[in-house]
Design a protein around this nucleic acid. Structure first.
Lengths: 230, 230
DNA sequence: CCCATGCTTCGATCGCCATCGAAGCGTTCG
DNA sequence: CGAACGCTTCGATGGCGATCGAAGCATGGG
């Protein structure tokens, strides 16, 4: 008999197409209702309900009651990160759901991963921050340096406010399209937020794509100029 | 329709208990025969054969013919790394296959992950190497510094020989038991090899456990003394 | 050569689980 | 309060896939 974590349970949860669709739909950090998810997955509400129950029992999703709706979201950054890693392997092994569509390049350029920026631009930002010594990698954990703190404050991020949460400030998340790290954690989320506020970018409706305006892209490139984009 | 990598396929592959057992059994980098794997998984050779065919089709395993035997191994470090990440989530979410057994603490202390050292000791080593500036984390990739190169050579590792392979020298791998990084890549493999040669440790039969001798543990602790063990 | 070994293919069986219709339960709104 | 909505539970159905016995194919040894 084997010992160790049970990957079969998680695998079978992720293995059903309807459930995989649900999880994928929730990878942006939205919380969706059961009916919306049913539509995303292409099944009836009854079926979706049973899937959702299983995903909750498995710890992958968390329900949230609000009025007569029930919203579902991915439980945890840990879960999102593991799913992103699986997507990485899937992309690497060459399993794609559909032939590369028109949306695909946009996804590769910039998309939402849970609540932070992923794709080429996410990696570009991460590269710049580490290369310029704003984020340091010590004891296998990321931390924000003095220089990085000044940068963040200057960029309009209220670090004190962020630090009140229990959530880690900086975390690395493996990008499935670029297969390198991008920045997750509270700071990653705050930065993306800031891009929205500054109108550099906006979320594309019903997708994970983050669309940068021309001006926004220029400003972004100027700010994170160290690393060259692919 | 969704776009992006297909996690459902991988999920369903990993989701079957027999296949999960097979994958887990191969997580040390051994190559096993179909019959051995059948026994590991607790199914007949016929059944195992069909599972193995699917795992190969999915890109997770690679077959290797040798005489009248056919050996199977995990295709790739990428695959092993993704599986380790899934185990991390499973452990985090609290799904364990069996009640914590006597072997479990030993697994947590030191075990083989593909072909490098994982567990408390693996993380301890990684921490020391990064903290002492032997491995640097730049542009989202690990690299061996001058100081690190001297260290490795002094420890009896032939870096030139290693570099002939196309395999990356240093890679980070997320440890499922400690949930922090340990060192993978060619250097990680070479270091573990060195521990065997120096008789600091040996593989426990039929398990992923790496058993350190008392003397070996002392030397190891002396060498990687920066980080305190848990 | 013939037989043993190792593995795969074939065919049949069985069980589990995804699916959906119908009904039940709670919430909201007019 | 009744009707509409949102979601879940129940029950029945169907299909896919895991499983194994038996046979087929290689390879190697005597």
């Amino acid at each position: 008999m084997k010992t160790g974590p049970d990957i079969a349970l998680l695998g079978s949860l992720i293995g059903d197409p309807a459930r995989a669709n649900i999880l994928t739909a929730l990878m942006d950090r939205r919380a969706l209702t059961a009916c919306e998810l049913a539509q995303e997955a292409g099944v009836t509400p009854q079926t979706a309900s049973s899937h959702l129950a299983k995903l909750i029992a498995g710890g992958l999703l968390s329900p949230e009651k609000q009025g007569r709706h029930r919203y579902f979201r991915i439980s945890d950054e840990e879960v999102a990160s593991a799913l992103e890693a699986l997507m990485g392997l899937a992309a690497y092994a060459g399993h794609r759901r559909v032939r590369t569509g028109p949306r695909d390049p946009a996804m590769r350029e910039a998309r939402v991963c849970y609540d932070h920026l992923a794709g080429d631009r996410g990696v570009q930002m991460f590269d710049h921050l580490t290369r310029r010594g704003m984020i340091s990698y010590e004891e296998a954990e990321l931390s924000l340096t003095q220089k990085g703190q000044r940068f963040a404050e200057d960029f309009g991020i209220d670090l004190d406010a962020i630090r009140t949460t229990r959530r880690p400030l900086c975390k690395a998340c493996l990008d499935w399209s670029v297969r390198r790290n991008h920045l997750a954690g509270a700071l990653g989320a705050a930065l993306l937020d800031r891009f929205y506020v500054l109108r550099w970018a906006r979320r594309e409706k019903d997708s994970r794509v983050v669309a940068f305006s021309r001006r926004g892209a220029e400003q972004f490139d100027a700010l994170f100029a160290t690393a060259t984009r692919r």
